[in-house]
Design a protein around this nucleic acid. Structure first.
Lengths: 213, 213
DNA sequence: AATGCATTTAATCGAATGATTAAAATAGTT
DNA sequence: AACTATTTTAATCATTCGATTAAATGCATT
């Protein structure tokens, strides 16, 4: 981001155009498969402007990834830290917020998971992932409800795997699932909207303390 | 695979060495990120031998992918088509077979899902994914049990999303989950082994016809 | 040993790609 | 209008990477 001689709308526009194009192409193809020329073409700008505004492909990628990660965890954080809602309500709010976000941006999970597998240290270094979960209002409630025997005994990480698996996995496997079920994009999304209602019910059943021996 | 002047152990060894190395590198880095030189180095062979035996990087990749897909669905097929076992038993057998396979080869899910997202047509063209599920012994039983009201009403595809989400997703998200839970590889695997027992229980609870209004 | 085919090697090619450069165009300030 | 800093463009560079080639080596049959 070069120093500006004066605030200028065109500068902001070009920079923003590049970011929008970069986000789209990176999300679709991942870091290694995207060419800076793809981004320049999509943005309708000269190739050199990418390096002029962002120095390198990698620096541009880092910015996009940081923003994408924020999208991915922001809705989660607000749900987890609402002191005023019950555990059951949090599950409902999370499922709804997440699935609606994933319907809008279905490439995000595979994008993040893929990059995370190939460069775990780089991506996870900044993220204080542990505190995110274990120091939340949700975590306190979870422990309390367990002590009151209102929910079954289950490590919080297993619970997290379950709710993420049920909500996020279909978007990771969407090409396979669409093929198996012969689904269009809209039909797939309809199934996902159905899951907004069902997943909290299923989670309740799983967490029912009386159902387990 | 050039015609052989005579059956020769060294030939087979070189070809096999390349395939083993290719499988390892492709699984770890995906198609675009792996260089043929990586494979040659890992196999301890001259770079040109890769093209000599397999013509191109892509042809080699296609072979590896076909084998990997087979690994991924083979254990599934045998479970789904065993006429002699109950639905409940099939869930148990599937979970056990799949999680044990994924502990051995944890990169397979992200490898397949990632390539599938980037080239869905190429990968899914051959796979008769629909018949795989809907024409199985499992499918017949599923419909029967539903008609007898022994299981809750749930589209088979939702059921598939649930069981795959619960079993496979943790391996897709493993870098994130390890970071959140501060887990070593062995600790992560221990959690997965625990899930072999738990997932069938959870599925039973979800499918209980009396639990739903 | 001589022959013939298969395998292996070192060297190199051509295309693709991220990045840079120098010149041209643009826009704000005086 | 003249000046100055910024932005944009076209051309080019250096490197990487998949693939090929021609020569060398290995090996079985005769």
């Amino acid at each position: 981001m070069p120093k500006r001689y004066s605030p200028d709308k065109k500068d902001i526009n070009t920079e923003e155009k590049i970011k929008i194009a970069a986000r789209s192409v990176f999300h679709k193809k991942g870091f290694v498969a995207t060419r800076t020329r793809d981004i320049a073409l999509e943005a309708g700008i000269n190739l050199a402007l990418l390096n002029y505004y962002f120095r390198s492909k990698e620096k541009l990628f880092d910015i996009i990834m940081a923003e994408t990660l924020h999208t991915f965890v922001a809705s989660l954080i607000s749900v987890l830290n609402d002191e005023s809602t019950s555990l059951q309500h949090k599950v409902e709010a999370f499922t709804k917020a997440y699935i609606e976000m994933l319907i809008r941006e279905p490439e995000i999970p595979i994008f993040i998971m893929s990059e995370m597998h190939h460069h775990p240290d780089k991506l996870l270094a900044r993220l204080n992932a542990k505190a995110l979960l274990f120091e939340s209002a949700f975590a306190k409630q979870y422990v309390q409800e367990f002590e009151k025997k209102n929910i079954a005994a289950m490590p919080m990480l297993q619970f997290l795997m379950n709710i993420l698996g049920l909500t996020v996995f279909p978007f990771v496997a969407s090409p396979l699932l669409k093929k198996i079920g012969n689904l269009s994009g809209n039909e797939f999304n309809a199934l996902m909207k159905e899951r907004i209602k069902r997943i909290p019910e299923w989670i309740s059943l799983i967490m029912n303390p009386d159902a387990h021996p």
